[in-house]
Design a protein around this nucleic acid. Structure first.
Lengths: 335, 335
DNA sequence: GTGAAAGCGCTAACAC
DNA sequence: GTGTTAGCGCTTTCAC
């Protein structure tokens, strides 16, 4: 920059002003500067500019579990939509559900002085973040609550969604409903299970632990588990899949089975309307989830300090009952 | 850092050494420093460290079209897999297919001194990047070639894929094959169309411009276009959809039609095996596409300068012919 | 081993 | 309007 100043025969600050489009520079001087900039191939170093006291990098960190899962990428998209307008860049990182990796990722982003972070927490305790927050980091947690840290939280109405889905399967006359889900250590999973059990109890249907299969991770895992369940002497007559991967797995295993087996699942699937089998999905706008989180973060960056929590409702959407475009019936909102 | 030095009663450089885990510090001194760091809640500022001459931010920029499209997120995932191991952070940004936005995004990332960039180019000319490259930026272009810039390129065998898909439809006896695609300004689209025409010609089937519909963007657009085509006096008997959104649209419009209409599409769809209708898809590993690009970029960052170009092959995968899990028949490789 | 001094490229405060 | 002077928080010589 100093070189430019010399080349143009002006002061350092004038170059700074011109380069940053600040006002208060005479046009001719600006021209000279611009010329020198061009001649010298000067590029402003944003990092240096952000070095100033208390300043940050105009960047936000997004820590999700897996860039390969449409749920998380929809979130990333929502976050980007809002942060782009404010000229933040988004640094995305996948924790791969590994608490240790998550921790390292988050701390690295902190060192890079991101202004704020949106985190889908994998660790059970985020106490390690509190020091950073005390130092000025702003954080919004997404999809799961956290303990030991100040920050906003954006949640899904998991319990309500599970309740509506369970009611639907019960209303179809099922009493032996299998549940497929991920690890019960994950809060969302516990909530969904709780909703399921609550509705079963209300309907007077006994809860059978043997029909609940937690653990599968990939669709293939889930398909195998489904096949195992169906091979039993007293197989389930309906399935509740607790996330998009489980749903795909269940459906894969059911391809040779008739429509008498009903399936409900959590998370929307973009192509569900094209499936061979009818399907009820607990849906919600995942992009909106990201937008809400980003909005909260931006509010925080603007100065809000009182913690907020928002819960995004879900809707049970029926696919395939009436195979006509655009007629998915929204049956009942969870809240 | 100076505060820490004072607090520990040591020199500035010693703190730096300890904080960066450099060797050559006596254990007791290190202990004192660590203590002071803890007491003062010191956090190293990575941005300041990277300010030094010629240094960079250990970050790479990824510019794609749309974070909502599984094609691009699969790429992002592949890129992340390789760059994570080298402690780079990934700054992701969507150009939304807007050349102006793309340009702004790229330039912003340059100013943030990313070490390298992986770009799915939307603009037709990237000459504006050459100055940055001359200044040391490393770039890899993905999915489409670019003009006017030095950099590596990772491409898909678009033409070969289209040829195999076209051959398949021809082999099923179709002579009136409709093509749905995005803008012909996009290189991939032109390649796919060229492959289609080449095989038509070879088979002696006349090319009918009226059956080629370019322009739809969303699945809904494509569904509408498909419906329009089917409503003609002499409708097509098969469809070639040139990307995942087109495929979904075509299938949506075809839900009420029998299996006599064949559909082939470009891009894999994760849930295609669950669809009501058989489907042939020109598939490839999009994550691998990202990995290849990242590998090239890392090589460049390690010093390679000779430009490279890699072409990733495609495979035609048949879904739904034989509804059993795991038996998707890979019919023919494009190369 | 350890530390002082001189920047890295920029912006904020303050003169002119 | 415009330029000068301090830093921002760190790393890098290079003495000690």
């Amino acid at each position: 920059m100093l070189d430019v100043a010399r080349e143009a025969g002006v002061g350092l600050k004038s170059v700074s002003r011109v380069v940053n489009g600040e006002s208060g520079v005479s046009p001719e001087l600006a021209d000279r500067v611009l010329e020198a900039v061009a001649r010298l191939g000067f590029r402003r170093n944003a990092m240096a500019g952000n070095l100033r006291a208390g300043r940050t990098a105009a960047s936000i960190g997004l820590v999700i579990e897996d860039l390969g899962n449409p749920f998380y990428t929809a979130i990333a998209r929502g976050v980007e939509q809002l942060t782009y307008e404010r000229d933040f860049v988004m640094m995305t990182a996948s924790s791969e559900e590994d608490p240790e990796r998550e921790r390292a990722l988050i701390l690295d982003l902190c060192h890079r002085r991101v202004d704020g972070m949106i985190i889908v927490p994998t660790s059970l305790d985020h106490g390690f973040l509190q020091p950073e927050i005390d130092l000025g980091l702003q954080a919004v947690f997404l999809d799961r609550p956290v303990s030991g840290v100040d920050g906003d939280v954006v949640l899904l109405d998991n319990r309500g969604g599970a309740e509506v889905a369970t009611d639907y399967l019960l209303s179809r006359g099922h009493t032996r409903i299998a549940v497929l889900g991920h690890d019960a250590k994950v809060w969302t999973m516990r909530e969904r299970l709780a909703g399921f059990r609550a509705r079963l109890a209300r309907a007077g249907v006994p809860y059978d632990d043997n029909l609940v299969c937690l653990g599968p991770i990939t669709p293939d895992d889930a398909a195998q588990a489904t096949a195992d369940l169906l091979a039993r002497d007293d197989p389930p007559t309906a399935f509740l899949a607790c996330n998009n991967r489980m749903t795909v797995g269940v459906l894969t295993a059911l391809r040779r089975h008739g429509p008498e087996i009903d399936v409900a699942g959590f998370d929307d699937i973009e192509t569900a309307g094209l499936f061979a089998r009818p399907l009820a999905l607990v849906s919600y706008d995942a992009t909106e989830l990201g937008r809400r989180a980003a909005a909260l973060l931006l509010e925080r960056l603007d100065g809000r300090r009182t913690p907020q929590q928002v819960v995004v409702p879900t809707v049970l959407v029926h696919y395939g009952d009436e195979p006509v475009a655009g007629t998915n019936t929204k049956v009942r909102r969870s809240r």
